[in-house]
Simulated assay, not measured.
Amino acid sequence: MNARKAVLRAAWGQAKVTVLRKYLSPTGISLLVFPVVVLAVLWFVRDSVIDGAVGVSAWVFSGMLAFSLIAGAAIGVSAEIQQEREDGTLMRAKAVPNGVTGHLLAKLVVAVVDTAIPVVPMVVGAAIILPDLLPSDPTRWLLFVLVYALATAAMLPWGAVMGSLFRSAIGLGVASLGLYALAIIAGLFYPLTMLPAALQVVGQFTPHYWIGLGIRTVLLDDAAMGLEVGGSWRTPQMVLVLVAWAAVGLLLAPVLLRRMARRTSGSAVAEARERVLSRGY
C-alpha cells in the first residue's frame, strides 16, 4: 500500500511540474490563440442558419468543442509518448521502481488537462460574447460533463495506442492526418445527413461522430434533430458506443505500452537520435 501511495504521489508531482512548464511557456500560452480564432469565426457567422432552423455558429461551436476533445486526448498523448520513447524519457522511467507506472499515471493527468485547455476558454468566451450558444438548463450541463468524460475516456487510450505503434514522427503525423480526415466525414462541422449514404455509414463507425452528437445534444435545440441521422439525438446509443470505444482502447493500450517499454533501450534511443540528426524527423 505504501508503494502505491508513493507511485501516486510521484505521478501527481510529475503531472504538476509538466503542466506548469507546458502552459507557462510561450508555446503553451500561444495555445490560447486557437479559442480566440474560433470565437471570432462564431461571431462573424452568428446570423447564418442551416435549413432555416439551426444556427451555423451553434453547429460549428459544437464541432470545435468535439474536435478539441479528440485532438487533445488522442493526438496530444500520442505525440508525447512517441517523443518520450525517442528522447530517453521512458528508458529513464524504467530505471526507477514502478517508474513506468507512475510516468503513465502522470501522463493521464496531464492529458485530461490538455483536453480542458482549449475547451474552457471557448466556453467562457462564448458565455461572454454569444451567451445564446450555451444551455441554461442544469440538466444539459450535467450531460455536457458526462459527454466530456466519455469522450476523454474513449480517446485517451487510442492516443496511447497510436503513440505505441508509430515509431517515427512522420508515421505519427500521417496517422494524425487520418484523425483530421475522420472529423471531416463524421459530421462535426456540418450535418452528416448532407453526405452520401455510404459516407454516413462510415462516419457513424467513428468515435468522432458520437462525440459530436453528444455535444450537439447539449448545445442545440430539439429543432436540430431533423438534421441528424434517424432524426433523434440517440443519447443511449451515444453513451454505449463511447463506452465501447473506451473499453476496447483500455484493453489494447496497456498491452502495447508494456511492449513498447520492453523494447525501449539505450541502443534504440541512440538510433532514434541518429535518425533525427540525419533526416530531421
Score class of each variant (00 low, 15 high):
residue 12 W to I: 09
residue 15 A to V: 00
residue 16 K to A: 00
residue 17 V to G: 00
residue 17 V to Q: 03
residue 19 V to H: 14
residue 20 L to Y: 06
residue 20 L to G: 05
residue 20 L to A: 02
residue 21 R to D: 13
residue 25 S to A: 14
residue 27 T to K: 08
residue 27 T to Y: 08
residue 28 G to S: 13
residue 30 S to A: 10
residue 32 L to I: 05
residue 34 F to S: 03
residue 36 V to R: 12
residue 36 V to T: 15
residue 37 V to Q: 07
residue 40 A to V: 13
residue 42 L to Y: 10
residue 46 R to I: 07
residue 46 R to K: 08
residue 47 D to Q: 12
residue 47 D to E: 13
residue 49 V to S: 10
residue 51 D to T: 00
residue 54 V to Q: 07
residue 54 V to I: 10
residue 56 V to Y: 15
residue 59 W to V: 02
residue 60 V to P: 01
residue 61 F to I: 02
residue 62 S to K: 05
residue 63 G to P: 11
residue 63 G to K: 01
residue 65 L to C: 10
residue 66 A to L: 00
residue 67 F to D: 03
residue 67 F to W: 07
residue 69 L to S: 14
residue 77 V to R: 09
residue 79 A to L: 14
residue 80 E to N: 07
residue 82 Q to G: 06
residue 84 E to T: 02
residue 84 E to R: 01
residue 86 E to G: 11
residue 87 D to F: 04
residue 90 L to A: 03
residue 91 M to E: 09
residue 94 K to Q: 06
residue 94 K to T: 07
residue 95 A to E: 06
residue 95 A to C: 05
residue 96 V to H: 05
residue 96 V to D: 05
residue 96 V to K: 05
residue 98 N to P: 05
residue 98 N to R: 01
residue 101 T to G: 08
residue 102 G to N: 04
residue 104 L to M: 11
residue 104 L to W: 13
